[in-house]
């Protein structure tokens, strides 16, 4: 069967599957980050430019927990989102909450500034070169799948990202809390009139969106080296993903994120030079055909 695949597409099968897996992993990060952006945008009406910096913070907190407190990967998985999410709550309370009555633009500029500050502080503290973070012992090694070797950790990233995405989707679509959230996204004043503390819900939503970015950061730490720029390089692609998917639907951002990751991986196999730009080209095509995005409401 492998020979048939190779015969059909003219590319060695391990290369194809290897890039597909890498694409899936990138897609996992796109999905988690664009999901967080969409949730925050839905309720707060701001585009969180700090998202990339918070993704980076998630990875750095994992590194610090290991280097300074001796707490391993699984503790980081639990504590890093809590710590970074809490820092997000403080940012929302102190800065962002002052801007809800103003033009969206100011929210964007404020979060851009906050992102610059965070990135600059980390660069001063840790330098620009990356810090290594080891794959936990339970997840190291690789499985022989017959057609390729799959590093266990990479498989774990895809599974974990899917789990967090689906869990977020279930919370928003199927729980009472999620119902409040969806209602407040549509008509915040009306929900407040029913006696629900909307400002607190906004704060917690921001914290949760940020925590999701931090989870992605912890997942990314053993794959990419932990460095201050890791978020800003990713976040611009994530913005393009958000434009392609449209921020109207939670499931839409998950599907778009994974799908574009795979497309990017395939492009690396067939036309490597275009792999850095393919997502932006898709964005242009989507804008021409469906300006509201694949899953967006016009």
């Amino acid at each position: 069967m492998l020979e048939t695949i190779e015969g059909l597409i003219g590319v060695p099968a391990p290369l194809l599957f290897g890039q597909l897996l890498l694409g899936l992993i990138n897609g996992a990060f796109y999905a988690m980050l664009s999901l967080g952006l969409a949730v925050i945008f839905g309720l707060l009406n701001i585009i969180n430019f700090t998202h990339g910096a918070q993704f980076m913070m998630g990875a750095f907190v994992a590194w610090m927990l290991l280097a300074w407190a001796g707490l391993g990967y699984w503790w980081a998985m639990l504590l890093s989102p809590l710590i970074v999410g809490f820092s997000g709550i403080i940012l929302e309370k102190v800065f962002i909450s002052r801007l809800y009555k103003l033009d969206h633009l100011y929210g964007l500029l404020l979060t851009l500034g906050l992102g610059l500050i965070i990135e600059g502080v980390f660069r001063n503290e840790f330098g620009s070169s990356g810090l290594p973070y080891r794959i936990p012992a339970e997840l190291s090694g690789a499985w022989d799948l017959g057609f390729m070797f799959m590093p266990i950790y990479r498989g774990w990233v895809v599974v974990a990202a899917l789990f967090f995405c689906i869990a977020t989707w279930l919370i928003i679509e199927k729980t009472r809390l999620g119902a409040y959230l969806r209602a407040a996204t549509e008509r915040a004043e009306l929900v407040q009139a029913f006696g629900i503390n909307v400002p607190r819900m906004i704060t917690l939503t921001y914290g949760a969106g940020v925590a999701l970015a931090a989870v992605a950061g912890v997942l990314a730490a053993p794959i990419y080296s932990v460095n201050p720029q890791m978020g800003s390089n990713l976040i611009i692609v994530v913005f393009a993903v958000v434009v392609i998917g449209g921020m109207g639907s939670i499931l839409g951002s998950i599907v778009t994120g994974f799908g574009l990751g795979i497309v990017e991986g395939l492009t690396k196999v067939f036309w490597p030079e275009a792999s850095a730009t393919v997502i932006f080209v898709i964005m242009a095509i989507v804008l021409l055909a469906r300006p509201a995005g694949l899953f967006g409401k016009a």
């Binding site: 800065f95 100011y106 404020l110 500034g113 906050l114 992102g115 610059l116 600059g120």
Partner: peptide, 15 residues
């Protein structure tokens, strides 16, 4: 630190 200062100016201007 220039990046940090620039970020700070963004925040100060907006707020």
């Amino acid at each position: 630190w220039v990046t940090v200062i620039q970020g700070g100016i963004f925040v100060a201007c907006v707020l």
